[in-house]
Design a protein around this nucleic acid. Structure first.
Lengths: 204, 204
DNA sequence: ATATGTTTCATACGTACGTATGTATCATTT
DNA sequence: AAATGATACATACGTACGTATGAAACATAT
C-alpha cells in the first residue's frame, strides 16, 4: 500500500488516475493530493506534468517488451531449425500483456488509449515501441506461414493488435454484455481465446 | 466548403477538431474561431460544450447503425430459411463503417477513441449503441456457426470489434509501417481483409 | 555539531477555460 | 413599416490549471 518514496507514490497515483480519468482530465493537483504530497513535488521530481507522463510510461513499457522478446527467443531456441508455430508467436506477444494487466490494470488501459491518442509526441512513444515488437513478430510469422503475402500479413498483424488492445481497454463492457461469463481475470482463457482467434485469422 | 448554417459549421468543425486534437484538447474558442463564428455561438446553439459533443455524435451514429441493420436485414431476407453466412454478417457490420470513414474520417477516428474513453457518460453513449448492434450480430452468428459455444462467440465478437476499431483509429501507423502498401483508401481490400481475418477467427 | 545537499511545503503568477450576460443585427411576418 | 423572434456578437466572471519561487525541514557526511 504505502510506497517507499514520494517519487514512486507519484508514479503509482498518476498511473492510476491517468487510467481512471484520462491524462488531460487529471490535474497535477489531483495527483499530488491523492499521493498525499504537495503540489510542487511533481515539478521537483519530474520537471513537469509531461515529465511525469513520460516516466509513467517508461517504467512499464520496456519491461513488457523485454518479457515478450524473452519468450519469443525461448520459443525460437526451442524450435531449433524449424519455424516457431503461429500459436507460440502469438503467445509471446499476448501473454506478457495479459499478465501485466492482471498485476496492474492501470497502465495497460491507459496505454491502450494512448496508442490512438492525437497527441503526436505521446503517440510516437508507443508507436516506436510497437514497431520493434511488430518487426520481430512479423519475421517469425513469415517463417511460420510463408504462403501469406506480406501485405496480407501486415493487415492481419494490425487486426491482431486491435483485438489485443481492445481487450485491455474494453473488457469491462464485454464482461457486462456477456452477463459476467467473459472475464479478463480468467487469464488462461483470455490468452487462449485471443490466440485461437488471431491464429485462425492470421492463417485464413 | 461553406456550409449553410452556423450550427452545421460548428458541428463540422468540432467533429474535425475533436478527431484531430481530442475533445478535452479542443476549446470552445478553438472551435468557434475555426468555424468563423463567435464564442457564444456554441452555448447558443448547443447549450454547452457537452451539448455540442453529443450533437456531433448523434448526427453520425444513428445513420451508421441504420445502414448496418439495412444491410443485415437484406442479407437475412436473401438467405430465406437458411442462415446468413458469417462473411455477410461481417460485411453488414464492417462495410458501413469503412464507407463512412472514407466519406468523413473525422467522426470514426473520434468515435474509435471515445469507445474507450474513461468519461462514463460519453462511453455510455457509444456502448449503448454498440449493444444494439452486437445483439443482432450475435443472433445471426449463432445461426451461422451454431457449434461455437456462446461464451466463445462473445469473446470473438469482442475481438472482431477490436480489429475494426483499431483500423479506424490506427490505420495511419499501418500505412507507414507497411511502407504504404496497406492503405485504408483501398476500401474493398480493407473490408475483405477484415472479413477474412475475423471470419476465420470466428469459426476457429 | 556543523555543514551540505535533498526533499517538502505554502504560496503566487499568468494563462486558458466554459459559461453567462446584455446588446445589436437580421429575417420574417403582419 | 412595425413588430417579433432568431441569431450574432463583445465582453466579463469565476474557476482551474501548470509552473515557478523561496523558505523550511530533513538527512547525511565530515
Amino acid at each position: 500500500m504505502t510506497e517507499i518514496t514520494t517519487k514512486d507514490r507519484l508514479l503509482d497515483t498518476a498511473e492510476r488516475l491517468f487510467a481512471e480519468r484520462g491524462v488531460k482530465e487529471t490535474s497535477v493537483r489531483d495527483i499530488t493530493k491523492a499521493a498525499r504530497t504537495h503540489l510542487a513535488s511533481v515539478n521537483y521530481h519530474f520537471r513537469s506534468k509531461n515529465g511525469l507522463i513520460r516516466a509513467v510510461i517508461a517504467r512499464r513499457i520496456k519491461p513488457l517488451n523485454k518479457r515478450r522478446f524473452e519468450l519469443l527467443d525461448s520459443y525460437i531456441a526451442e524450435a531449433g531449425n524449424k519455424p516457431v508455430t503461429v500459436e507460440r508467436i502469438l503467445h509471446a506477444l499476448i501473454a506478457p500483456s495479459i499478465e501485466l494487466y492482471l498485476e496492474n490494470p492501470h497502465f495497460l488501459s491507459f496505454a491502450g488509449r494512448m496508442i490512438s491518442t492525437p497527441d503526436k509526441q505521446l503517440h510516437r512513444i508507443f508507436a516506436s515501441q510497437m514497431d520493434e515488437v511488430f518487426s520481430r513478430i512479423k519475421d517469425q510469422l513469415m517463417l511460420a506461414i510463408p504462403d501469406i503475402p506480406e501485405k496480407e500479413l501486415m493487415w492481419r498483424i494490425h487486426f491482431t493488435t486491435g483485438a489485443i488492445i481492445h481487450t485491455w481497454t474494453n473488457h469491462a463492457d464485454l464482461e457486462i454484455r456477456s452477463g459476467g461469463i467473459c472475464k479478463i481475470k480468467d487469464k488462461e482463457e483470455v490468452i487462449n481465446e485471443l490466440i485461437a482467434f488471431c491464429g485462425a485469422g492470421l492463417r485464413a
